Amino acid sequence: MAFTGFPEAALDFYDDLEIDNSKVYWELHKGTYRTAVAVPMAELTDELAAEFGSAKIFRPYRDVRFSKDKAPYKTHQGAFVAVGPATGYYVQIGAPGVRVGAGFYEASGERLAALRSAIDNAIHGAELEQLVNKYTRTGWELGGDVLKTAPRGWSTDHPRIELLRHKSLTIARDYGFDEIIHSAALVKQIRKDWRAATPLIDWVCRHG
């Protein structure tokens, strides 16, 4: 079926889950999760698949084996379209509403070294710097795992040291509770956002 928007029940579901993250709550409301969250997310990503590829819709369960936080359920539902190793397009819904993003979410040592080498390059690094500046000027939030100091082997006065510090690099945009998240128009908006993010994805895939 065509995506018609996330219902208000999806936001209410996650509001309550943040308060009572328990199996009892989940079992009582798993029907709401399916109809208000899982099914609409599948419909949304299906409509985007022809252009961007099939999405992995993440399981709602947390891996608590090595975590002090034993809350069993994620407080958002995410979906990811991979176009490279840990690189691609992202969308999620949770209590704060809808968030979209793109970038590389982690990198092996060898791949990270290749990306940093490209950032160091005058031409390729300047290209990424221009992209990032454009995104931040147009309302995207720059994110990722960032070192507090320069990575080993790089000077703190490198002209692109802020980019070199990134162990992952993402851009994201929030739609929160905007009315668009409850309508079919969200598909068009996310398509527009992901198209805008494609130059970043392409840069990462070329150099990493």
Rank of each mutant, 00 (worst) to 15 (best):
A2G: 12
F3K: 02
E8H: 13
A10H: 03
L11W: 05
L11M: 06
I19A: 14
N21A: 03
K23T: 09
L28G: 14
G31H: 14
T32K: 07
Y33P: 03
R34Y: 05
A38Y: 04
V39C: 05
M41E: 01
L44W: 00
L44V: 01
T45Y: 01
E47F: 09
A49G: 13
A50E: 08
G53Q: 05
S54G: 14
A55N: 02
F58C: 06
R59F: 11
Y61T: 14
R62E: 06
S67C: 04
K70C: 05
Y73E: 04
T75Q: 09
T75E: 06
G78W: 00
A79P: 07
A79I: 02
F80S: 05
T87L: 05
Y89S: 08
Y90T: 00
Q92W: 03
G94R: 01
A95Q: 02
V98M: 04
V98T: 05
V98N: 04
R99D: 12
V100T: 11
A102S: 11
F104A: 06
Y105S: 07
E106T: 12
E106H: 13
S108A: 11
S108C: 11
S108N: 10
R111C: 03
L112A: 07
L112E: 01
L115S: 01
L115T: 08
R116G: 00
A122L: 12
A122T: 15
A122M: 10
E127C: 11
E129D: 15
Q130C: 11
L131V: 04
N133T: 15
N133V: 13
K134D: 08
Y135Q: 05
T138Y: 10
W140Y: 09
L142Y: 07
G143F: 01
L147Y: 03
T149W: 06
A150L: 06
A150T: 10
P151W: 10
G153E: 00
S155Y: 00
T156K: 15
D157H: 14
D157N: 14
H158C: 01
P159V: 05
R160W: 08
L163E: 03
L164S: 02
L164Q: 06
R165W: 03
H166V: 12
L169N: 06
A172K: 09
D174R: 06
E179R: 14
I180A: 01
A185V: 10
K188L: 12
Q189H: 06
I190K: 11
R191P: 14
R191C: 09
D193P: 06
D193Y: 07
D193H: 08
A196L: 10
A197P: 10
T198L: 11
P199I: 03
I201F: 02
H207Y: 04
